[in-house]
């Protein structure tokens, strides 16, 4: 009994850390531009495949770096090559980004086949913690998650560019008044969001699966977490990521895996009915 609880605590913490990585980028982009970037899941996929392709040649650390960089560049590319031209229309952006994600899925299928791929462990091996077998990569994901959150926190509170992002996500109008260069803020946000997605993608791809269809589930997760956490709130997203991570772990343990999405839907409906602005949100789009 006690050991079961400990297992749930540990497993939940590990998976939640990855969910936080996935959701942060999504919420930042939503925060500064009011844009729901539905290619977000595909960015994860790009990072996982980048690691898969390059790791045999340049090693594990190299593969991780290439994956993160490529996801950041791809995110930047999506903004500069597509979203920039249509962002004034939220609905068009919304649909265009999901079409882009579908196109990326087909492109990946053509390049790598439908077959799910195995990624080489970043840190091979495992360790038993309180009777629960944890791969080092799970622990690594946890550490990465918090290190990156820490770095982001430092960035948005202690650097000029970062503060501009924070200000914009609080109030776009206010930010413009204080002389923030809005296009520059958006470009930076997309880059940072892409890097977070890259880290999340490598770990999801490594610990779960790397396949052309791996984008939809993380995207759904990010979407849910952002709604629960409150639009544009990084703090809210982190808390919501842990909430969802633990609820999922509990659901799987108590009801079985097929019920995960059912429980998730119920939670979302409850949140929408009773607290539509989410845990830490401002009213949606002001």
């Amino acid at each position: 009994m006690i050991s079961d609880i400990i297992t749930i605590l540990i497993v939940g913490a590990m998976i939640s850390a990855i969910y936080a990585l996935i959701a942060i980028g999504f919420t930042m982009i939503f925060g500064v531009g009011g844009i729901l970037n539905l290619t977000h899941g595909a960015l994860l996929m790009i990072a996982a495949y980048a690691y898969f392709v390059t790791q045999p040649y340049i090693g594990r650390a190299g593969g991780v770096i290439v994956g993160i960089v490529l996801a950041a560049v791809a995110s930047y590319g999506v903004y500069m090559g597509l979203v920039r031209y249509i962002e004034e229309n939220v609905v068009i952006t919304f649909m265009a980004t999901i079409m882009a994600a579908l196109a990326l899925q087909e492109a990946m299928t053509m390049a790598f086949s439908q077959q799910a791929q195995v990624l080489t462990p970043i840190m091979p091996g495992s360790v038993a913690i309180a009777g629960t077998r944890m791969q080092y990569d799970q622990l690594l994901a946890f550490v990465f998650s918090w290190v990156m959150i820490g770095m982001l926190w430092y960035y948005v509170t202690n650097t000029k560019d970062g503060r501009a992002i924070l200000a914009t996500s609080m109030s776009e109008r206010g930010a413009i008044f204080t002389g923030v260069d809005l296009p520059r803020v958006r470009r930076q946000t997309w880059l940072i969001a892409g890097a977070f997605a890259g880290v999340g993608g490598i770990f999801i791809g490594r610990l779960q699966q790397t396949s052309p269809e791996m984008w939809l589930e993380p995207l759904t997760l990010a979407f849910m977490i952002v709604i629960i956490g409150g639009v544009g709130s990084i703090k809210g997203s982190i808390i919501a990521a842990y909430l969802i991570g633990y609820i999922e772990t509990l659901t799987v343990a108590l009801l079985g895996a097929p019920y995960r999405v059912v429980v998730a839907l119920l939670i979302i409906i409850a949140v929408i009915m009773y607290r539509p602005e989410g845990l830490y949100g401002r009213e949606y789009l002001e």
Binding site: Q114, Q115, S211, E213, E217, T220, E248
Partner: peptide
């Protein structure tokens, strides 16, 4: 959260699998 069941297909002696190739 679930993706609709799918993916990988290598289909089977036994059966089934689906993907979204058409």
């Amino acid at each position: 959260m679930s993706r609709e069941p799918s993916q990988q297909n290598r289909d089977s002696s036994s059966n089934s699998d689906r993907t979204n190739r058409r």
